[in-house]
Design a protein around this nucleic acid. Structure first.
Lengths: 206, 206
DNA sequence: TTACATTATTTTGTATACAATTTATCTATA
DNA sequence: TATAGATAAATTGTATACAAAATAATGTAA
């Protein structure tokens, strides 16, 4: 049996990322390699790599935990609309029976699941659709935005955005009925509403 | 006066990248940190960082210089069509007088410039259009693909693809005449032709 | 006091040594 | 000969020390 201890870089990356995502490291907070290294019990070397990866994902900028502005949020969602809209179109054309039934499951769980289950199902819903594009570049681009997206998806689900599940269902139906144009359009609208909801929340909080 | 010697990471990154782009490091070739370090006269530490960055850009995969397949090429161009198509639309709506005249210049140089000038002008043409989106995420996503795109743009210009300049001119006209739909459509068609040309070249060479 | 220059201090960049892991080579056995 | 296992070689991962650079603090002249 293989123990496969995770390497220090990976551990560091995941720990720091999670600290950012759950708020232990707050927006705007300064990151220093040495401090983190001491904190996590590794040397600076793997920490550096981890930070670089987080910078790559946009969670850290200039050694500071990112504080996404309205504009950032809009930008991210604009890219998502383009790429995921296209993906939804692909899903309507190419998705397999398996993929369809998994999508259906996600919609169901969205209606009746627990908080965590809903979180997972929603993420999976989008993920499967993106997969159907069969385009690794596209998938990679979306994945890179995933952490920041997660930051907001949490908000959306936590505050229980109205019609979210219904919209997923509509998208699913369009995909199942093989209506590419409609699937794309619905996905774009769906993301636009997510964006508006997020923006509204952010601006009412500050 | 400030001397600002470039740091070893940056130097390494640029040197390795250029070696890949101009063929000194060939597709499929194995990269080892130590060998590169000895070659470039740095220690392994900055080399590692440089390699990681090249991996992010997709020029190195699994410690090997990337050998883009047809599928990779198609994937990249699909993403470009989505993002640059959208950008062309933005350009038709938002571009400034300055941006327009620079675009016009690029088209002109494309008609009468030297090989190097044409290369630069073509790159600039696309870059300006992408800028008009005002979306840093989108710009960043395109820039990350830039190295690999460059690899192919060289081919396209070198073999003097027919109608390339004419297509740029058409796109420019649509932008200047504030026709967003048309600009987007033309940009997509333009990229599709680039893709076909590249694919054709690649497959006739091997 | 303000502004500037100078000095400390912190933080990052680089080199190097060693550990862990992966990959290649070799040998014994079926 | 092929294959599994062991051993050696190459390569990567991590820790640490020191150099360079950036940032903060201090003092001094206007």
């Amino acid at each position: 049996m293989k123990m496969d201890k995770k390497k220090a870089v990976l551990q560091s990356y995941e720990m720091v990322r999670d600290k950012i995502l759950n708020g232990q490291l707050q927006s705007g907070e300064k990151i220093t390699e040495e401090k983190l290294a001491a904190d996590l019990g590794f040397s600076r070397t793997p920490i550096r790599d981890a930070i670089k990866r987080l910078e790559y994902e946009g969670l850290i900028i200039n050694k500071k935990v990112v504080k996404p502005t309205d504009k950032d949020l809009r930008n991210i969602f604009q890219v998502r609309m383009l790429l995921e809209g296209y993906s939804a179109r692909c899903a309507a054309i190419y998705s397999s029976a398996d993929q369809l039934s998994t999508l259906a499951e996600c919609v169901e769980i969205g209606k009746s699941g627990s908080y965590d289950e809903i979180m997972d199902a929603n993420e999976k819903f989008h993920q499967i659709i993106v997969q159907t594009s069969g385009n690794d570049r596209l998938i990679d681009t979306i994945n890179r935005m995933q952490s920041i997206i997660y930051l907001f998806r949490k908000t959306v689900v936590f505050y229980n955005r109205p019609f979210l599940i219904e919209e997923h269902e509509d998208i699913f139906n369009a995909i199942r009925d093989r209506q590419p144009e409609r699937a794309e359009e619905l996905m774009k609208q769906h993301l636009e509403k997510d964006l508006d909801f997020c923006l509204h929340l952010i601006n009412s909080q500050n």
